[in-house]
């Protein structure tokens, strides 16, 4: 078991190494960077939704907090970008931990409602506190600087994001196959059974919620620096839904499903631009089609078809 070669991770590394050499132009490199960032957010979210079985319809809110921390703290208070990034994670972590205790007494649609509400409140706050956030128009983000040099080039960003993605995939795999991960999956499978073997169900739900929220915040910061601009749309309800959709389309409780879901749904809007005006209709129809015909998601469906698990 532990000697088994981690083929999945090797394939991911191989693809990430190959991408810069095969993409025809910077448009596709930009797309690859955004895919990788989304993939990391979705990995975190899948731990919560797919493995632990707890829904969140407000994760874009946490992403927004991270993004705005990286915009506001350096701009208004002169913080170093890395410190601001950390600040965003701390704020998100505290907020998520505070609300998580009461929220995770809730189940099913009540939990969906609460997380949705939280995301919307964050979004409206970002939209309204214009003196800090620039309001609905958003605000520019100062460039990230590492070791005294500012990062502008897409190539540099790509390697940073790719390295982080490899670590994130590896860490997720480790986590799932550990006592912590087993407890998460067990409370999804049977809450009462996991309780009677000693799993403190609320504590586990809170931990994974906070972890995935902080992760989203970190990715929000990275996105903000990479794009150089933030707007309230980062924390939009629809963005939360997009992230959840990536989890489900790729495959719940599947590490590689997270990657596939993120890649496909990041590319989809680009592919749909040719539909001029019909993008929303087509996007909605594709979501419905996926859920109706592949309700288990792409990777688990394929895995079942070829008779092997992950």
């Amino acid at each position: 078991m532990q000697k088994k070669l981690n083929i999945g991770l090797l394939i991911v590394i191989f693809i990430l190494l190959a991408v810069p050499f095969v993409v025809p132009n910077s448009f596709y490199l930009d797309l690859a960077i955004r895919m990788a960032i989304n993939a990391m957010i979705v990995l975190g979210l899948n731990l919560l939704i797919g493995f632990a079985g707890q829904i969140s319809l407000g994760h874009a809110g946490f992403l927004g907090i991270g993004a705005y921390a990286s915009a506001v703290l350096p701009t208004h208070f002169g913080w170093h970008p890395l410190l601001a990034m950390l600040g965003g994670c701390v704020i998100t972590g505290i907020l998520a931990a505070l609300v998580a205790r009461p929220i995770f007494k809730l189940k099913g649609h009540y939990l969906a409602m609460a997380t949705l509400g939280l995301g919307i409140i964050i979004n409206i706050t970002l939209r309204n506190e214009a003196q800090w956030t620039g309001g609905p128009d958003g605000m520019p983000v100062p460039p990230m600087s590492l070791f005294g040099t500012e990062i502008y080039s897409d190539k540099t960003w790509y390697w940073i994001v790719a390295a982080l993605l490899v670590i994130a995939v590896w860490a997720s795999q480790n986590l799932i196959d550990s006592p912590f991960g087993r407890a998460l999956r067990a409370l999804h499978g049977s809450e009462v059974a996991s309780q009677v073997v000693g799993v403190n169900v609320v504590r586990y739900k809170v931990s994974i919620f906070v972890l995935s929220a902080v992760f989203a915040s970190l990715m929000g910061s990275i996105t903000a620096h990479y794009i150089g601009f933030v707007s309230p749309n980062f924390a939009d309800f629809f963005h939360s839904i997009e992230l959840v959709t990536m989890v489900v389309v790729g495959g719940m409780a599947s590490v590689f499903g997270s990657l596939v879901g993120a890649v496909l749904l990041t590319a989809l809007p680009q592919a749909l631009t040719s539909f001029e005006g019909w993008e929303t209709v087509v996007f909605g129809a594709i979501l419905m089609g996926f859920m109706i015909f592949l309700p288990k998601g792409i990777v688990p469906t394929l895995a079942a078809k070829f008779g092997k698990g992950e």
């Binding site: 829904i55 839904i241 909605g284 859920m291």
Partner: peptide, 11 residues
């Protein structure tokens, strides 16, 4: 599953 149905209706 609940999330699947949520996504369908959002679609």
């Amino acid at each position: 599953e609940t999330v699947t149905l949520i996504i369908i209706t959002i679609g």
